[in-house]
Design a protein around this nucleic acid. Structure first.
Length: 499
RNA sequence: GCUCCCUUCGUCUAGCGGUCCAGGACGCCGCCCUCUCAAGGCGGAAACACGAGUUCGAUUCUCGUAGGGAGCGCCA
């Protein structure tokens, strides 16, 4: 049997009630090992993603190792699709791990081995209590205003019950207290009298969560456990198991969960909760990453961080204690920032993905880099950008009714025809010359830019909203522009004739 | 019910006993710019949950109260 590995990278997190072992120097320990351990029972949601991201950053900051472990012991609910969704989500966010993915289902022999060891040493025992008895016990205790827990009926030896396969329970200490210094919450202590003898193996021998985590983290040499704060209450039990195994517990950091914009627990009704849904909605991974890391963590007043800066500055101990509400407006702002500041080619790559999904051929129009340069500060998401740019890649459909009525009127005919002619004479189709052509046409007539730009805009895009007129012409291209101007002139003529 | 945990502008946060009649960011409001929509520039409103202590002095420390969250499984 392989020895249980012990690794320390800072002082013991457990301590007698006196003497505070201050966790020190999280950074700089080359042997730090963290892990992200999701259970594959659904997609990777933003809360889990943020936990993963903190594990990743902390490992990178300490030049340690980041491990991925899939906790799939729940055969009923775990699915290969979920595993894939987790892997895809992490890949999209750029969370690369150094070890794994390990799968708990492949380690059942090992859990059985350790459970057997605890049994042999008397640190665990078999329990034949029926579920009915446990149920009745719980009700009784609840009625008495007590915290429901196992009463230790089989703890000191019990007669096997014929035809019943026993569970294995961990023999939890009866007194004393468990104290640990959580890297984000500070000191947490709980009395052993609050804990009971938890089941570590079911009748069929399959292990339970609190037991597998300990065995895995020990075997994998994990010395810093970063996880959601819903596990705080499990930690003391786990620490007791570490001790029973004669091992040093790792350090713990419990990060708060993410709330919906209304402060309630994040759920589907808040819109996107799955990381991959954000990709579909048009967000850049850099934006979501930056948003998530700033949610509950900060470095002075800085809002924008490059990956290298995050790694340089991140320290799990700086993570906030309280749950944070997800704010889509701020994510939007970050997304726009990254659409404008990332290399256009990089943004274009993601944009291409959206075009394809929408059934638009990105090669039937201007280069996507040019499009990004023009549209990035006009939209919040790549999806919006693609939607608002179809006219540069596809045939123009019907004019927006209101826009056509307002701008494609007989008075617009002459200026539109004039600008069309001037554009047709242009030898070079670039924004500078295009702008000049429109401006001069307006000046010659002593009319405002808007008197020409708006009709032109409707002619080119079918609606009254688009990038500045020179950029719109530039993106539409010479051929499309001239053709659409002709069409608009015909439309105006037909309308005049009908009046 | 019991145990554990949390509490600064609407939201994310800075603050680690005096530097705070509390700073930044998103959002919001106003003005400017302007060929539309944006973007940009300038300005503005907006918070220490409450009550006791400790202290010369509390946003910062302690204890209560209120509010919120999590856990109490042969789920993870």
């Amino acid at each position: 049997m392989p020895p249980l590995r012990r690794r320390l990278f800072f002082g013991p997190p457990t301590a007698p009630a006196s003497g505070l072992p201050v966790p020190h120097a999280v950074r700089g320990h080359e042997d730090m090992r963290t892990r992200f351990a999701p259970s594959p029972t659904g997609f990777l949601h933003v809360g889990g993603a943020r936990t993963a991201l903190f594990c990743y950053l902390q490992a990178r900051a300490a030049k340690g190792v980041f491990i991925l472990r899939i906790e799939d012991t729940d055969l009923e609910r775990s699915t290969p699709e979920s595993v894939q969704a987790i892997l895809d989500g992490m890949a999209w966010l750029g969370l690369d791990y150094d070890e794994g993915p390990y799968y708990q289902t492949q380690r059942f022999d090992r859990y059985a081995e350790v459970a057997g060891q605890l049994l042999d040493e008397g640190r665990a025992y078999r329990c034949w209590c029926s579920k009915e008895r446990i149920e009745a016990l719980r009700e009784e205790q609840m009625k008495l205003g007590q915290k429901p827990r196992y009463d230790g009926h089989c703890r000191d030896g019990a007669e096997p019950v014929a035809g019943v396969k026993p569970v294995v329970r961990f023999r939890n200490p009866l007194d004393g207290e468990v104290v640990f210094d959580d890297l984000v919450r500070g000191r947490i202590s709980i009395s052993n009298t609050e804990l009971d003898d938890l089941v570590i193996a079911r009748p069929d021998g399959s292990p339970t969560y609190n037991f597998t985590v300990v065995v895995d983290d020990l075997d994998m040499g994990v010395n810093l456990v970063i996880r959601g704060d819903d596990h705080i209450n499990n930690t003391p039990r786990q620490i007791n198991i570490y001790c029973a195994l004669g091992a040093e517990p790792p350090a713990f950091a419990h990060v708060p969960m993410i709330l919906g914009s209304d402060g309630a627990r994040l759920s589907k009704r808040h819109g996107a909760v799955s990381v991959l849904q954000y990709r579909e909605d048009g967000y850049l991974p850099e934006a979501l990453f930056n948003y998530l890391v700033r949610l509950g963590w900060s470095h002075g007043d800085q809002e924008i961080f490059s990956r290298a800066e995050m790694i340089e500055y991140f320290d799990i101990r700086d993570v906030n204690r309280k749950a944070a509400a997800f704010d889509t407006d701020k994510l939007d702002w970050l997304n726009q920032h990254y659409m404008r500041s990332l290399p256009p080619g990089e943004v274009a790559r993601h944009l291409r993905w959206h075009f394809k999904r929408m059934g638009i051929d990105p090669d039937q129009g201007p280069p996507l880099e040019d499009l990004v340069g023009v549209q990035a500060d006009r939209v919040k998401t790549l999806k919006e950008m693609a939607e608002q740019s179809r006219v540069f890649y596809e045939e123009l459909g019907d004019y927006d009714e209101g826009s056509a009525k307002k701008h494609l009127r007989p008075v617009a005919e002459e200026p539109l025809r004039a600008v069309g002619n001037r554009l047709a004479d242009l030898l070079v189709w670039d924004p500078g010359r295009l702008n000049e052509a429109v401006r001069i046409t307006a000046e010659e007539r002593g009319i405002g830019m808007g008197k020409i730009a708006q009709p032109l805009r409707v002619a080119l895009t079918g609606a009254a909203v688009s990038p500045s007129i020179d950029k719109t012409l530039w993106l539409a291209g010479r051929e499309r522009s001239l053709e659409r101007i002709s069409r608009a002139l015909a439309f105006i003529a037909a309308r005049a004739a009908a009046m």
